[in-house]
Write a protein that binds this DNA or RNA. Sequence first.
DNA 1: CTTGGCACTCTTCCTGCGCGAGTGCTAAAG
DNA 2: CTTTAGCACTCGCGCAGGAAGAGTGCCAAG
Lengths: 355, 355
Amino acid sequence: MTFRNELSDLDPRAREVLREIIVQHIDSGEPIGSRTLAKCGRFQLSPASLRNVMADLEDLGYLQQPHTSAGRIPTDRGYRYFINHLMQSRALTMRERETIDEEVGMVSEIDQVLHLAGSVISKLSDQVGVVFMPTLLQFAIRSMDFILIGEKKIQCVIVGVNGVVVNRIIDTRFVFTRDELEKISRYITAEFGGCTLDVIRRRLIRMTEQERALHDQMMQKTISLGIEAVNDVAPVDHELYVEGAASILNKPEFSDAASLRRTFLALQEKEKLVDILETCLSEDGLQILIGSESDFTQVHNFSIVARRYGSTSAPLGMVGIIGPMRMEYARMAPLVDYLSRALSRKIEEEQEQGT
Amino acid sequence: MTFRNELSDLDPRAREVLREIIVQHIDSGEPIGSRTLAKCGRFQLSPASLRNVMADLEDLGYLQQPHTSAGRIPTDRGYRYFINHLMQSRALTMRERETIDEEVGMVSEIDQVLHLAGSVISKLSDQVGVVFMPTLLQFAIRSMDFILIGEKKIQCVIVGVNGVVVNRIIDTRFVFTRDELEKISRYITAEFGGCTLDVIRRRLIRMTEQERALHDQMMQKTISLGIEAVNDVAPVDHELYVEGAASILNKPEFSDAASLRRTFLALQEKEKLVDILETCLSEDGLQILIGSESDFTQVHNFSIVARRYGSTSAPLGMVGIIGPMRMEYARMAPLVDYLSRALSRKIEEEQEQGT
DNA sequence: CTTGGCACTCTTCCTGCGCGAGTGCTAAAG
DNA sequence: CTTTAGCACTCGCGCAGGAAGAGTGCCAAG
C-alpha cells in the first residue's frame, strides 16, 4: 500500500476532522463515530458528510475501524500526522515545572538523580518513566577519591566534570592506610582530572609497563587501585531506570489481565528498550516513536516520548516516557522536554560550580 | 465463635487430611474435594468418610468452602495450624544458597545490599521481596569521611561499625578545601568513632554552645559540617525496598485485572507495610503472618514471611517476602531464614574485617 | 457538495439451560 | 461405633440465542 505525500493530501476540513477524532479518542479511549463527532459542534456538517470525510481518512491510512460497527480510531500514521502537523503543545503549569526542578535539584549522586528523574516524570505524566544512561567509559572526571571502608575494601568516589557523582566499592588486593589513600586521591585527581575513564584506564595500563612503576611501591599501589576503580565502573556499560510501571494499571487499553501481564513483562525485558534508546541517542531534540515505528513499541502498541539530556558537548543519556499510543502527546512532549532540559541545566550548573 | 485448643482437638487422621488438603491446594490453587483427596491414595478411606472428616475440620475453622458445590480451601487458621504443626521445611538447594551468598556478597553500600537482597529473594521465591531498614539514628559509626564534590557540595561517606556504608551528598553553608575536609574527616572519625548518629548529633550540638567553638574558625566549620551530615542522614527515618512486584502476575489468585490492580496499589502504599515490619522487628526468629493476622495482610489475603537481620547485638531490619496466603511455606521459610542469616553474617564479617 | 433515509453489520449484554462437581444426609453394612 | 454406598440437592460455569444499540455505506434528493 502506498500513500501520497502527507501534506498535500489533506484539505483543511479533513485535517480538522482528523485532529478532532484524535483529540477525542485520546481523551475517551473509545472509537469515535460520526454522530459523536457531529455533536461536538465544531463542524457545521451532518454525520453523513463526516462519514464521507472519515472514509477518505481511512482510505489514506490515518484512521481504522476496530470492527465494522464501531467508530474510528487513529492509526500509527494518524498519530504521526497529528504530532507533526496538528498538535499544539500545552504549556506546563507552574506546579509541574516546580516539581521537576525540585526533584532534579534534590540530589547529586547519579544513580539517585536518574531514579528521581524517572519517578517524577512518571508521576507527572501518569505513564511509565524511563531513564537511560549509556556507558560511563566516556565519562570525563573532575576528581577521584578513595575512602577506607574496611581492611581491603575501598570506596571510590568519582566526580565527573559535569558534577555527576559515581560511587563504587571495590575489593582491593592490597591493604591501604588512610594516609596512602589521601595521597593516592590527590595524585590521581591531579594527574587525570579532565580525562575520561577510558583514557585513564589506558594510561594506567601503559604506566604498569614502565620501569618506574615496578620499583616504586607506592606507585604500584596507586596504579593498581586506579585500575581496579576504573574497571569496576566500566563493566556497567549502561543503566536503565524504569519507574512507575504501576501507571499502566489505570490505562483502559490494558484493562484485561492478559495484556497487563504482557505489558509488565515487556517492561522487564530491558534489552530491547536499551536498543531503541541507544539509537535515539544520536539525535537531538524531542523524539516520539509511535507503535510500529520501533521494534519495542510495535508489539504492544506503545509509544515512546524521549529526549536526550546532558550538556550539548557531551550528551549523557535519554529520558522519557512509555505509554499506550493513545497518550496526551500535547502534554507529554513539553513534560519530557522540560525534564531533559532541567537535567541538562543541572548538569551544566554543577559543571560551572566545580571549576 | 470459639475454638478449642488447637493441639488437642485433632486426631492423627484429621491432621493428615488437613495436611494433604493444604499441600494439594498450595500446589494446584484449586479447592480440594473429597474425591480428589480419596484418589491421591494416601488414605484408605472412601470419599464419604473423608467428607465427614472435612466437615469436622470445617466446623473447627480450619477449612472453608468458597461456595456450596466447591471443594474446601484452608482458612487462615488452617494455614496457621499447618505451619505450626504439620509443615516440614524443605532444605535449600545448593544453587539457592550460592545465589543468595553471591548476591549478598557482591556490594557493600547499604542501599544496594538491601536492594539486591530484596531482588534475590523475590527471584528465588517467585514472590514479592521486601526489605526494611528502620531509622539510622541508632547507627553506630566507624568512620565518617567528607569528599569535595562541588564548591558547596560535599559527599559524606559514613561507615557503620557493622561495615555498612551510607552515602549522602550535602549542600553546605561554607566553602571547604580538600585539606580542610581531610582534617575534618580525621577529626570526626577519631572523636566520634563508635558513637551512634544520634549521640553524635547531640554532642555536636552541645559543642556549639561551648565557647571554644565560637572562636576557632576551623572548629566551627567542622561542627557545622558534622551537624549537616547527621541531619541529612536522619530525616530518612526508614527505607523500604519492595522488589519483584511483577511476580504476582503469575499467581492465579490475582488473575483478574481488578485484583491485580488492587494488589499493585497495596504494594505501593508502603506505610502499612512499614508498620507491620516495625512491630516484627522486636521479635527474633522467623515470623509468618497469615491473612487476618495483620492489618496489611488481611485485606488482600496476603501472607508475609519475614525475619530480622543484623548482628544479634544490633538488629538492623527485616527481610522477607509477601505473597498470596497460598504459598509454599515449606520453601519460603528456609529461603527467608537463609537470606537473613546471610545478611547478618555478611554484616558481622565486615564488622570484624574493619576492626 | 450536502443531507436524510435506510438496510446492513457487528458487538455487547442479558437470559435460560444443561452439565459437572461436590456436598450432606440417610440407611445399611462391617 | 465406624465406614460406605446411594441419592437428592446446590451452585458455578459455559454456551447458545435473541434483543438492543451503535455505526457504517450507499443512494437519491435537495
